[in-house]
């Protein structure tokens, strides 16, 4: 009897069974990459530090997805779902960044790198915060009211 959702898709998925050694190998590679990213991160490389860290993280993430999550043994729909979600993540990152990078300079928040305006009083001192630091009310008892930001 033919049933609508009958398929032989799964015969190709997850049926190969291999030794546990592969997982230990991936684990070792992940640890090495972690050490590499920490060492290079501590150097505070000027321009390509972020790029390098993200490339290493992407390699690690790919190893986890392919071997720990068995994506390397999957075909079809599972791969498409994962791939498409990554494409959407990239789009979601790229479009707001492109917006910020091309804005009229005055539209950026005051105090930011791409603004000529002075930062407002962000009120972050122990005695000064809008709520006197919020978590330390006892310290603000004797100090005068903090002026609202932007009133000076």
């Amino acid at each position: 009897m033919a049933i609508a959702n009958e398929s032989h898709q799964e015969e190709k998925n997850m049926h190969e069974h291999h030794g546990a050694g592969r997982y230990w190998l991936i684990w070792g590679v992940l640890l090495v990459l972690t050490v590499v990213t920490v060492v290079t991160g501590r150097m505070h490389l000027p321009s390509f530090g972020l790029l390098l860290a993200l490339v290493i993280a992407t390699v690690k993430g790919t190893l986890v997805a392919l071997y720990f999550m068995h994506l390397s043994e999957h075909r079809g729909a599972n791969r498409i779902v994962f791939g498409v979600s990554i494409v959407f993540v990239v789009l979601m990152l790229a479009i707001p960044m492109a917006d910020l990078g091309t804005r009229f300079r005055g539209a950026n928040p005051p105090g930011s790198q791409y603004s000529d305006l002075q930062p407002p009083d962000i009120g972050t001192g122990a005695q000064r915060g809008r709520f006197g630091g919020g978590l330390r009310p006892h310290q603000t008892k004797d100090t005068p009211e903090t002026p609202e930001p932007g009133h000076h």
Binding site: Q9, E10, F82
Partner: peptide, 28 residues
């Protein structure tokens, strides 16, 4: 409603991948 155990497992796994895709976008 599943033709075979294989199809049922495939559906479960695909559902999990779909859920994980939403999780990835949540963190994104």
């Amino acid at each position: 409603h599943f033709a075979s155990l294989e199809v049922q497992n495939h559906a479960a796994r695909l559902g999990m991948w779909l859920f994980l895709a939403t999780e990835i976008l949540l963190f994104a």
